[in-house]
Amino acid sequence: MPEILNRGDIHAFKNEVLALIGQDASRCIQCGKCSSGCPIAYEMEHLPSQILRFIQLNMRDKALASNTIWLCAVCETCTVRCPESIDIAGIMDALRKICRREGVMPGDKKIAKFNEIFLNSIRGNGRVYELGLVMKYNMATAQPFKDALLGPVMFGKGKLKVAPDKVQDIAPVKAAFSKAKTFIAPKAKE
């Protein structure tokens, strides 16, 4: 069944993204420069420019389910080269936030899981505990021996610590975690 585009407000998703982060996907002329330069595009289900097109055409579910938004390494190549100065990496980031907020099944579960564990490490310690992070991630994704060969190498070099580094006053960090909002309304352009 082809998607019927005009069943709802065709501008709805575009306006949602605009309201959340102040980036107007309708400015995109689909030149494809973001896709041309994206170092991860090979692995993506959809090119970055296609994600922008989904926003333009109100294909919300399709955009949010794509692994593209999770694979984006936020290297910002697309953003700095966009002829319309659209912050494409910022839009990918916003789409990830929407997924998290709404509990949408992430298009790449491993990356989503890793970022979650990473964040928990900060929540608990105030700093990232790299060894614990990798171990937890490997357990969570059921690949206990992933990079097992690297562990001893890095240990041998003294690059991994056995115990986590912690901040002494964790209260403000915890406060930030419990109070922070997903989106901050963008400032109106002057």
């Binding site: 970022n115 990473f118 964040l119 900060i122 901040v167 002494q168 930030a176 909002k181 997903t182 901050i184």
Partner: peptide, 22 residues
């Protein structure tokens, strides 16, 4: 003194405000 993690991209991807708060 007693610095904390900047939050890297993970904080930002979850919550814009948390990404700035850290």
């Amino acid at each position: 003194p007693d610095w904390n993690c900047c939050g890297a991209s993970a904080a930002h991807e979850t919550s814009e405000e948390l990404g700035l708060a850290l």
